[in-house]
Design a binder for these strands. Structure first.
Lengths: 215, 215
DNA sequence: GTCTATACTTTGATAGAC
DNA sequence: GTCTATCAAAGTATAGAC
């Protein structure tokens, strides 16, 4: 193959709605740019997407983008931040609404993570898979939120072990395993498979309980 | 920010050895190109890497690359195939060496996947995270191997349920959960954390057994 | 096989009119 | 805010000498 087929473009996801959580998208053109960036970054990756593709998706000239964002990277930075911030808020709210037992609190976290990824799969994919394309300064706010989210899980696990509700040899590895189930959801959940978000969440809650030996 | 800082480059991984399994790298310059591609694709992604960077890493002129590979994509295609083929072979060998019980066979698969990712993290990362950058035709052989690897796991799970060794409501979701723990290993395992590959494997085997309710 | 030189395209971003 | 027009740089890949 010595030439590139211009009609083919790689696709990372089956077609799903390009959606952001309510209230987080800026109004007007800036918001439409953000949605277009979300769709294209999820599909082609940050480096695989050109500023002209984003503009075409919005229906504006590429130069107009720079009236709303100072660079291509700033569009990604906003998406990555929104994704991490949204997940962290969902996790915090889930804990606030959860019952007092460690098992209930762990279930609330797993459910919130699964729903976050099933409801906004493009956002989850971009936030997790394209973060590495950001400069350290642009990535820092999202990384702080990721660390805080991680802490929410570990506090629940540590409490559960301390109270005897959980029985697990290594809390860190158990947390990694539970988190791994969750972050992968956006990569396989979609309209081409038969499960509802609720079925996935309840199954993964059971697995998480099994992993930590919840009584 | 209106200009790009040419001295900064995004980094996806902490420094680890750039290694391929024995015997899979072609001899001579072609093999050195493959190693350079592995390192750079893992670090910067396929679209984030230029043909000139690969050539510079090898220490040759960029034009010389085309005496060994017909395109940038062919280098990635070979890496993605090697990664999927290597994992599949390891899984098959693990089953051949495993004891007869479903629990032993599941343990063998989990251990093989963990070792494959801890021993060749760059290869695992490129094979899984950059596959989407390939054309459908270039990706097909790897996808076939991935499906066959998936089947190995599901056969063990189905056997375990049929024999009463496992107790799990949904084999598909359990398989996804177990596979998710494994594919994430390359993203966090490295010299900056305290676990050995054996510790990770044994912990994940326990979690897998817990997920499927192994008796 | 490897090089120098270069063709040609696409890229991110800017200038300036309206 | 949006456009047309354009720049400078970087991109993949090729031609042809050695």
């Amino acid at each position: 193959m010595t030439t590139t087929n211009p009609t083919w473009e790689p696709r990372r996801l089956t077609a799903v709605a390009v959606e952001l959580p309510e209230g987080v998208a800026p109004p007007g053109t800036r918001g439409r740019i953000l949605h277009a960036g979300l769709k294209l970054y999820a599909d082609l990756g940050f480096h695989g997407t050109s500023i002209r593709q984003i503009a075409a998706e919005v229906g504006i000239n590429s130069a107009t983008l720079y009236a709303h964002y100072p660079s291509k990277e700033h569009i990604l930075a906003e998406l990555v931040y929104i994704g991490h911030d949204g997940l962290f808020r969902e996790l915090e709210q889930a804990l606030a609404d959860a019952g007092p037992s460690p098992a209930e609190r762990l279930a609330a976290l797993v459910r919130a993570q699964v729903y976050s990824h099933t409801d906004y799969p493009l956002l989850a994919l971009v936030a997790n898979s394209e973060l590495h394309a950001l400069s350290p300064e642009s990535a820092a706010p999202a990384l702080t939120l990721r660390e805080r989210s991680r802490q929410l899980l570990y506090e629940v696990l540590i409490d559960g072990v301390a109270s005897g509700a959980f029985s697990v040899a290594d809390v860190t590895l158990a947390g990694i395993a539970i988190g791994s189930m969750g972050v992968r959801v956006a990569s396989w959940f979609g309209p081409d498979q038969p499960y509802t978000r609720e079925q996935v969440a309840e199954a993964f809650i059971t697995y998480a309980h099994n992993i930590v030996g919840a009584r």
